[in-house]
Nucleic acid binder design. Sequence first.
RNA 1: GGAGAGAUGACCGAGUGGCCGAAGGUGCAUGACUGGAAAUCAUGUGUACCCGUAAGGGUACCGAGGGUUCGAAUCCCUCUCUCUCCGCCA
Length: 473
Amino acid sequence: MAIPRRPAPSREARGGPGEGRGATGVGLARAGRRDSRTRPKAHGRSRLVMLDIAFIRQNPDVVRAAITNKRLALDLDELLAADKERRETIAKLEQRRARKNEIAAAIPKASKEERPKLIEEGKAVKTELETLEPALTAIQRRYDDLMLRVPSVPRPEVPVGKGEEDNVEIRKVGTPRVFEFEPKDHVALMTDLGLVNWDGPRRYAGGRSYALVGMGALLELAVTRLAVDTLVERGLTMVIPQVMVKERALTGTGFFPLGREEAYEIGADEMFLVGTSEVPLVSMHCDETLELAQLPIRYAGISPCFRREAGAYGKDTRGLYRVHQFTKVEQVIFCAPDEEVAEKEHYQLLANAEAILAKLEIPYRVAIACTGEIGLGQTRKHEVESWMPGRKAYSETHSCSTLGDFQARRSNIRLRLADGSLGYPYTLNNTAIASPRILIPLLENHQNDDGSVTIPKALRPYLGGVDVIRPKR
RNA sequence: GGAGAGAUGACCGAGUGGCCGAAGGUGCAUGACUGGAAAUCAUGUGUACCCGUAAGGGUACCGAGGGUUCGAAUCCCUCUCUCUCCGCCA
């Protein structure tokens, strides 16, 4: 059997308006944690729509393969059983409710003699409902939990693999420079050039903290502005979003529940700091129905990003490679639910990032991530890795993803299709620039034997014309 | 932070216990009329889930959650959001 082209066959592709509604799962409001003394908020409706349950039922093997290949721990049979139980409970419950409605409608019309009997039955039905309703709530909650862990199905071109070593390099651009002197790593360079203060921030903010100082700070402003200008020139709409968000934004974009440990929580207000502006940019349209004519929507967001790096204790602790707070310019696309369109957008996002690296004269390579390295919602991901002489390796600086309708479903972002029916748009995203990480290849690649750093031409206008950063005497 | 007002379908807006999935209007769609259009008239016009090959049937939804009742848009409680005034503030 051929792998279906998309997780949810869209009506467009299947034809006529007479087509049945694409089945979609709607989660009941998550009624957990109802202790109103400790958790007083019950915000809005939280309708969570995941991978189409009808699709899962009809293509369990496809979904099972996605789970295996993405190396996720989800028992699909448990989900299918929960789905079955859920539907049976719904059927029973609705049957009783129908009777309840019948009785309620009959009472005003009933004769004096009939009435007490009906009221008695009504009471009995009510009692039945009182046990059925909590039963449904419980099974629905279990079902929702499982549904949130169902991955999107990777595109056919994604290589099956376990880890980084199974990513497939697609191309190398530029050649790593051969130094005729012993190059410094960015830590030494930046320390010697006075671009960063390490110790102060570590005293007041702990590990992985830093402060960009002087030219270091100006450099971050310069590279981000260069990225912004590049994207605006290429037709993206600049957005400066809210970076404090409610849980639903993180669930909606697919970061929760699996990535919960990665986010900083602002406990008192039940808010979270985002790890990327992808979260607010996608969520900006949650609960909306987009029109086909609005698409594609192309955003460029700039924001501080916050990551706990919970799974990375002791990893990359030196320098600016892996830090808790950084600045990122991110690209986010909403497009029509069409694989060809999405593919085009995907490669455009990739091209935008590459154009920025070219301006910064940084050698890089592009790899397609294997199934084991792509996230729950991603159907395809490319990594752009910049050459970092200090690490003697290409290391990730950009990540370009297509998510199909995964985020749109979870975020309840719908799309009015050509035939008038409702579908879901596709979403994509890619880094444009993330600083200070990008400063690593920027400074390391352009360093000189006297400890100075030459600024690439394209960046100079953003630094008031400075062409070389020299150690202060 | 203090005081008050509000939340009903795409929009406006009525509705204080059963006849309300919800009047009326606007908008939109289709048809009639027209040489064409406007106007007019008629009809239709939400979302989601469950059962069903389908036709169709059922359930839920009047900001959210809970309660009272045989029966809740309507009564009670809690919360969220919006608006106004005061205070504070970049």
